[in-house]
Amino acid sequence: MILARHAEALYWAGRQLERSEHTTRALDVVARNTMHYRIPRALAEWGLLLDVFGLTDRFRATATTAVDLDRTRVADFLFADATNPGSVVSSVRQLRENIRTVRDRVPVELWEEANRLHLDLGAVDAAHLLHEGPYELFSSVRRGCQTISGVVAEAMPRDDGYTFFDSGRMIERSIMTCRVIRFGLFGEARHFDHAILLRLVSSLQAYRRMVGHDHDRLALAAFLLRTELVPRSVLSCLRRVDDHLETLQRAAPGMAPARQVCGRIRSVLEFGDTERSLADDHARYLLEIESGVLDLGHMVASYAFNPIHSTGLHAQFVRPGGSGP
């Protein structure tokens, strides 16, 4: 079985890959959209994006005055700010560092592509490009992320390492989809245009084909939560995680609690009446799903990566060099 430390590095690498791609795509979509708006509305959209990422407070903390919320600053904060651990540059750096710690056990191409993406980002003046040619920059980063996904899909053996990497990706992705729905669709003050929202989770085309042009808010939310065929829906992400956990559980019985959590949210989505629950109390329902997914991430992390759960291990060995029981 995979080393706990390696599993952890791969799990986070998966999350960081997903985060990098998602953030870049979101910036791309919002930047293209807001160029049609006057400043107040544009700023509101950028503010909404910060809410989706849960970075509003952090951004405010870096701003010196109230008027500091402008599009360049938000884009810079979300993309190039190395002090923001959620920025694209930071995510890519952490992704590369995590892959580096497991470079002996992943396909060579995976390490090379992660390294290349990191080096490419380091070689350009991102802050300047965000101003002058953001779309080229965004598409190159997205291409880099997609290349990594492609290498993982085609070259990575379906072993425990893959299981953790993909679980990380799927958990990050479902958290992002949850947040896009909760803030972008049911936001307190305002919400994204529905087409924009679907673009944020790269599901616009699928929605048009499967549902059409009818943008009912509840139907849209249900679509993103529980459509099995859409790879960014919460349910399809959780199904993948569940499959992985099932495989893992055979050799690692400690994964059982995580699987229980996963099964619980799955059944809510799969067997519950999503539209009705949303209509009754969307805030409570969406929060329940989102915190369930967050719980799942927490369970995977604490049971798989924490040696205290290893069977038959003396407490004194839990921390190397520790002072004993």
């Binding site: 706990a4 430390r5 002996d104 690692a252 019985p253 798989a304 990566f305 291990l313 003396h314 190397p320």
Partner: peptide, 28 residues
């Protein structure tokens, strides 16, 4: 990578009853 073996750090290993074990996600 060349040998196809695990690359471990000290914190990944543990000694129990005079045997050395690696901490994996499935136990030691």
């Amino acid at each position: 990578r060349l040998m196809g073996v695990e690359l471990v750090e000290g914190r990944d290993l543990v000694v129990d009853d005079q045997g050395v074990y690696a901490r994996t996600v499935g136990g030691i």
